[in-house]
Nucleic acid binder design. Structure first.
Length: 271
DNA sequence: AATCGCGCCTGACGGC
DNA sequence: TGCCGTCAGGCGCGAT
């Protein structure tokens, strides 16, 4: 399931191949994604050039003057570069066919992903407008989290997963970062002090950077643009490890449901 | 204003 | 073996 590291892995994988390439055409085989793929999209993209591939939160942004193609991978989506002549498989919903004979192929079994086109600055798009800071950027730190969390009564884990507070921290990395920082995921966000938020912000950066380094986390279906899985799964400290010993104190890892999400923590060393 | 709960969708998995 | 019910999971949205 693509979280920020998986999307960044995808961006890094495709950028060298697609940057500067001319789009021959867009082939839409299945427009029924989370939102319908705009019918006008093929006309807008044909014969245009991809200038840049960037990322905001979990959105991939392809700069294609005069606009921007915005892609979200949902939770089962992946983008791969394949020969345009390769026969598409069942969940290969669209192909961005490039001038060099390859195509960028979007595969998404659950169809929670989406594709958007905007000719305004992408930051103004309704889906991006309200997003919080990038966790790996300077604008994100413990002081920001501390300020944002005052008087919040919700648990810190769903607080972290709220993209208005910080983007890109999904279910896996929220559990991981809270373990690294020694914070109980169920603790009220408003009852955590400034210093602990500084530790938490550092833990988020550490976990995300390490996950990007490992090529993301593959649980079931995430594949990078070259078709290889991510290897961060082997580095996960608590996620998916209920009953196993905590890597820090050896007490058992617990599985709870918090905000309707599976949440893993150590019964002893997170407070 | 903050928070909760729903629904989208498929594949995996467990029970029988 | 095969069928069927259940569930995860990102995230926007409507309800509270």
């Amino acid at each position: 399931m693509p979280e920020l590291p998986e999307v960044e892995t995808t961006r890094r994988g495709i950028a060298p191949h697609v940057t500067g390439q001319r789009i021959v055409r867009l082939v839409v085989r299945e427009p029924r994604l989370r939102w319908p793929v705009p019918a006008s999209l093929p006309d807008r993209l044909a014969d245009r050039r991809i200038e840049e591939v960037s990322r905001r939160a979990k959105y991939l942004l392809l700069t294609v003057p005069p606009g921007t193609l915005i892609l979200h991978l949902g939770m089962s989506g992946s983008l791969r570069l394949v020969p345009a002549v390769r026969t598409p498989a069942r969940h290969d919903h669209l192909d961005l066919v490039l001038a060099d004979g390859l195509c960028l192929r979007l595969t998404d079994p659950r169809r929670f992903g989406s594709v958007h086109w905007t000719e305004a600055p992408p930051a103004d798009h309704p889906l991006l407008r309200g997003l919080g800071p990038e966790p790996l950027a300077d604008a994100f730190d413990g002081d920001w989290l501390y300020t944002r969390s005052r008087h919040r009564r919700s648990a810190v884990k769903p607080f972290l997963m709220n993209a208005q507070n910080v983007v890109g921290v999904g279910n896996i990395y929220a559990s991981e970062a809270l373990h690294l920082a020694g914070i109980d995921p169920a603790r009220a966000a408003g009852r955590i002090g400034r210093e602990r938020y500084r530790e938490l912000a550092a833990a988020i950066r550490t976990v995300l950077a390490a996950a990007i380094e490992a090529g993301g986390t593959t649980l079931r279906d995430f594949l990078a643009s070259d078709g290889r899985p991510g290897y961060f799964r082997h580095h996960l400290r608590v996620y998916g490890r209920a009953g196993e010993p905590c890597p820090r104190c050896a007490a058992p890892i617990r599985l709870r449901v918090l905000g309707q999400r599976a949440t893993y923590d150590c019964v002893r060393c997170q407070h």
